[in-house]
């Protein structure tokens, strides 16, 4: 899932400078699960922003909230469409994709990010999420015993470990597991050590963000005349 966390209340208030009616839009999918931008969290930040604006002498600014099922799918915007025109700013509590989707759907209204989108990750334990995948566009997990060195090795080494690996810990930050220790341990446990003894070839980064914004097209699913968009 996409993991995000909230912005400081004052940062939100500053973003809304010059606006009179602001709609905070929560997202019911990833950011609800990571407790950043669902109905409850959007409600909390809505209350907080209203109170902070009042204290700053901007109590006349109307701040309302609503939450839609998913912001990364245009189909779910319909219930919002009727209300959009009543506001002069929208603040999305979805991930960066949601913010941009709202900006596309409401071309005449200022759209702001309510969250800081962090990464694609996993719920490690209650309240703790960790990054697992960088979306490199050409998954090589099969070569690395199912542990991603591109995301989890601080130096993105494909032939690790580096000299900084100590007792299973990465030298970059305390409490950070060395991805290459994890890869070695798991390869050993499942009997595939020989695989990581081979030299891994350099990555082709053209499939990642370095190759420009990416697009996935499934021609068989595109309805004639409706897509794919240019």
């Amino acid at each position: 899932m996409i993991v995000a966390n909230r912005k400081h209340v004052q940062e939100l208030c500053n973003m809304f400078k010059g606006h009179k009616r602001v709609l905070l839009v929560g997202c019911g999918t990833c950011v609800t699960v990571c407790l950043a931008g669902g109905e409850r969290e959007t409600g909390i930040l809505g209350s907080a922003v209203r109170m902070a604006l009042k204290l700053a002498g901007r109590g006349e600014v109307v701040v309302n909230e609503c939450t839609i099922e998913r912001q990364c799918d245009d189909a779910f915007f319909d219930p919002l469409a009727a209300h959009g025109a009543e506001y002069d700013a929208i603040c999305s509590f979805g991930c960066g994709v949601g913010v941009q989707a709202l900006a596309e759907r409401f071309p005449d209204i200022s759209v702001y990010p309510g969250l800081n989108t962090q990464f694609m990750g996993l719920l490690e334990s209650q309240g703790v999420w960790t990054e697992k995948c960088s979306g490199c566009g050409n998954c090589r997990l099969g070569e690395f015993a199912g542990i991603c060195p591109i995301t989890r090795c601080s130096k993105r080494l494909l032939n690790g470990p580096c000299g900084g690996s100590r007792d299973g810990q990465c030298e970059v930050r305390e409490g950070l597991d060395c991805a290459w220790q994890l890869i070695y341990d798991r390869a050993k446990a499942i009997g595939t050590l020989s695989k990581i003894e081979e030299i891994a070839l350099p990555n082709d980064w053209s499939t990642a963000l370095d190759g420009g914004t990416r697009k996935v097209v499934r021609e068989d699913q595109c309805i004639a005349g409706l897509g794919p968009k240019a």
Binding site: H8, V9, Q10, I44, A48, M51, A52, L55, A56
Partner: peptide, 8 residues
Amino acid sequence: EILSEIGL
């Protein structure tokens, strides 16, 4: 924490 951010 949130109250302090609000200024309360």
